[in-house]
Design a protein around this nucleic acid. Structure first.
Lengths: 112, 112
DNA sequence: CAGCATCCAACCAGATACTG
DNA sequence: CAGTATCTGGTTGGATGCTG
């Protein structure tokens, strides 16, 4: 780990993953491969069209996901992880594992 | 990794680490052990007293850091990681490594 | 189907002033 | 020294309506 926190890059990773829906969107794409807009929307209960669009655009801008438009009627747009995006998997994995232990721990405390 | 993103715990980890100053505060405490309030403040350029207080309280509430008050004049308060807080180190490490590669990549793109 | 535009509420964070 | 209180501006997220 970097010895000088002034040069901290944790924030760089955080800025990619921050956004209310990004982790769950990424997990879906990692697990299920390629998904259409509405399929993704149904997979993320509670998200609005606008927010899904916004979050997808931000991830696309960072080259984390790929957006493929099929020039058809009705329109069809598919989203998938880029190879670069897949490099986030260990990070998400680490966060997921820690988060799981953390929520268990909180649960135990509540039970007391 | 959890197969059902509906039960995603990445957000749990994210909620702990989110907050403009938390990663750098945690890195300082991980590297330097125990720090007083003002020492920490000097270590995080740009942070205000209020924000430092708020972020420290939130981390303390989650049992990530320990706050020890010495009943002296002038007041002295020391902050350090809890054992539980240290369990976040692999997560921060993963994020740091990814973030470092990410910022290098962005740099390369800019150079083109 | 997959968006975009607009408007609005809530939250987050900063500046500043005051205190035991 | 290590805070708290208050005010304020900026950003984020949500509701709704419209479009190729």
């Amino acid at each position: 780990m970097e010895k000088i926190p002034e040069l901290c890059h944790v924030d760089d990773a955080l800025s990619i993953l921050s956004g209310k829906w990004k982790p769950i969107i990424l997990l879906h794409l990692l697990h299920k491969g390629t998904l259409r807009f509405n399929t993704l929307k149904r997979s993320v209960p509670g998200i609005t069209q606008k927010m899904l669009t916004v979050q997808l655009r931000e991830l696309e801008d960072e080259d984390i996901i790929r957006r493929v438009v099929f020039p058809e009627i009705p329109p069809k747009v598919e989203y998938s992880m880029t190879d670069y995006g897949r490099s986030l998997e260990p990070v998400l994995e680490a966060m997921h594992q820690w988060g799981t232990r953390h929520s268990l721990r909180k649960q135990e405390k509540k039970d007391c």
